[in-house]
């Protein structure tokens, strides 16, 4: 099945009902997308499909046919959001960080605190109390 993964066209053979999360981690070797619950509650597996944040644990692989999927690896490591998370202590244990950054991406540059809190309500972090994450997202 053909889709666009981090700006490259890829052809991946996997069961159409396999979770996108597992396809990314196992077939594509992209382990930056994490599993925290499998229920769509924690947001650790957040990736973008056609620029919209989704939980990859709730997406059947078949549904990304011809779509653009962006994972944390697609940001390259030096994206302003990534730099801001590093500088502001937004990443502690780091397991929620890729999902948090992917959920923050659609919020655009320098979003308001209210927009950040609402936009990240689907991403759980147990380390930071979110304060450092707000500082990072608002800075980027």
């Amino acid at each position: 099945m053909i889709f666009t993964l981090n700006a490259a066209t890829v052809d991946v053979d996997a069961h159409p009902m396999k979770r996108l999360l597992d396809v990314l981690r196992e077939e594509c070797g992209l382990t930056g997308t994490k599993e925290g619950c499998g229920e769509g509650e924690c947001g650790a597996c957040t990736v973008l499909i056609d620029d919209a944040a989704v939980c990859a644990c709730l997406v059947p692989f078949a549904q990304v046919r011809d779509a653009r999927v962006t994972t944390i690896e697609g940001l390259g490591g030096d994206h302003p959001l990534q730099r801001a998370f590093a500088e502001e202590g937004g990443a502690q244990c780091g397991i929620c960080t890729p999902g948090m950054i992917m959920a923050a991406l659609p919020l655009g540059e320098k979003p308001s605190l209210r927009k950040v809190r609402e936009g990240l309500a689907g991403n759980l972090c147990r380390c930071t109390g979110y304060e450092a994450i707000y500082r990072a997202v608002r800075k980027a």
């Binding site: 769509g40 947001g43 939980c55």
Partner: peptide
């Protein structure tokens, strides 16, 4: 109903 990820799907 949920966070952004649920809204989108």
């Amino acid at each position: 109903i949920g966070g952004a990820q649920i809204h989108n799907r």
